[in-house]
Simulated scan of single mutants.
Amino acid sequence: MEVFNLTSSDPSTFILMGIPGLEPAHVWISIPFTMFYIISLLGNFMLLFVVGKEQTLHKPMYLLLCMLALVEIGTSTSIVPKALCIFWFNFKGITVSGCLTQMFFLHAGTMMHSAILVTMAFDRYVAICNPLRYATILTNARIANLGLVGLIRSVLFILPMPLLLSRQPFCATRIIPHTYCNHMAVAKMSCGDITVNRIYGLVAAFVVMGLDLMLIALSYSLILRSVLRISSKKAYQKALNTCTAHLIVMLISYPTGLLSTLTYWLGEGIAPHVHIMLANLYLLIPPMLNPIVYGVKNKELRDKVGKYTFKMCSH
């Protein structure tokens, strides 16, 4: 099986190596992978279930949380099952079409995740800076429309990546030193000119994400200016508390994502297994921690989750 996997020149198949250099430890590495994935699924599905069941939670903020949960379930599911097949059963083959499909869902999910974080920052800005107009500015329908805009943006920006690669001639050696089909990892398998792919990948990663970060920074600078004008200490603390969960989620998501991207583009001296571990943790840790962060920081959500957990345990 191993010899076949490493020498296969089937023109319709790529070979995903997993984590090069750490092959003997693949089974051990699969343990935290599986734990993170299961906790992520449980947390995000619980959030979706509770918000869906509770009429009082049918508000813009919780609708955004549901969008985030759906994206995180989709993004982590696009990579973890295949990675576990590599770790457990040494099933390293993936068809070219399967690889390009995985790449599309992975990168589109990442971009959609960023769009939702921008919308959440706008939600917090309106809640703190225009509280009296919050209900009229941010209706559930408007949040759904913003989510749709984010989805269309993700599809339009990411779709050219697999389409451009599908036109490339791939070399006989089709070994991808990764656990999943990352855009640049697949592009490097091509025997043709990948300049356009490189430039487009950089533009999509830094221009779009950079714009999102600028919008988030603008929202929070306006929030901070508004909060500093509050004279009541109690109101001041309440205003800050409404932003805490979102800030923590951003600090979990963006730095790990940017670090992973930068090590791929600039980290020639970084060991491949270090970069691949970082790339996987970026897609595993935020989906696991985000429902926990919101559950801990949001009393209304925490109480509802507690209610349903108690019901399930009592049965």
Rank of each mutant, 00 (worst) to 15 (best):
T195N: 10
P160H: 02
A172D: 09
I158N: 07
I199M: 14
A185Y: 04
D212Y: 05
L213Y: 07
S231R: 15
Q168L: 08
S114G: 13
A135Y: 07
L164N: 05
L156E: 02
S226Q: 15
D193V: 02
Y125A: 04
A121S: 15
V208W: 04
A135H: 14
P131I: 11
R133N: 14
V186A: 02
L224W: 10
P131A: 09
D193S: 07
C171I: 06
A217D: 07
A135F: 11
A144G: 09
I194G: 02
M120C: 07
R174P: 00
V227F: 06
L148M: 09
F157N: 05
M214S: 15
L138G: 06
V186L: 03
L132C: 06
V207L: 15
V227D: 08
L165K: 04
L148T: 08
A127P: 04
T195C: 05
V196I: 12
T139D: 06
I194P: 01
M209F: 09
T139G: 07
A185Q: 10
R142Y: 14
V186K: 00
A172R: 08
R142K: 14
T173A: 04
A121E: 10
R133Q: 14
T195S: 12
F157E: 07
R198C: 04
R124L: 02
L138I: 14
C129P: 05
C171L: 07
A115I: 06
L156C: 06
T136H: 11
S231I: 13
I175T: 07
S232F: 06
M209T: 15
L222M: 15
M112F: 15
I223K: 15
M112N: 09
L211P: 00
L224H: 11
D212G: 03
R167W: 12
F157V: 09
L151Q: 03
C171R: 13
F104Y: 09
M161F: 00
F104P: 00
P177I: 04
A141Q: 14
R174H: 01
R229D: 12
A172V: 08
N197D: 15
R174A: 01
S226Y: 07
T195R: 06
I137G: 01
V126E: 04
M189C: 05
V149S: 04
L218I: 12
L159D: 07
V227Y: 07
L156P: 01
M120N: 02
S232V: 04
A115Q: 09
I152F: 10
R225I: 08
L202P: 00
R174V: 00
M161K: 01
A121C: 09
V149P: 01
M189P: 01
V118C: 11
D123E: 13
L224C: 13
D212A: 10
A141N: 10
F122G: 07
L218W: 13
H107K: 03
C181W: 01
A204G: 03
N182L: 12
S190W: 00
L159P: 05
G192W: 02
A115V: 10
L138N: 10
I137A: 03
R142M: 13
Y180A: 02
V126C: 04
G210S: 07
A115S: 13
V207P: 05
F206Y: 15
L132T: 09
R167T: 15
N140L: 15
P169A: 10
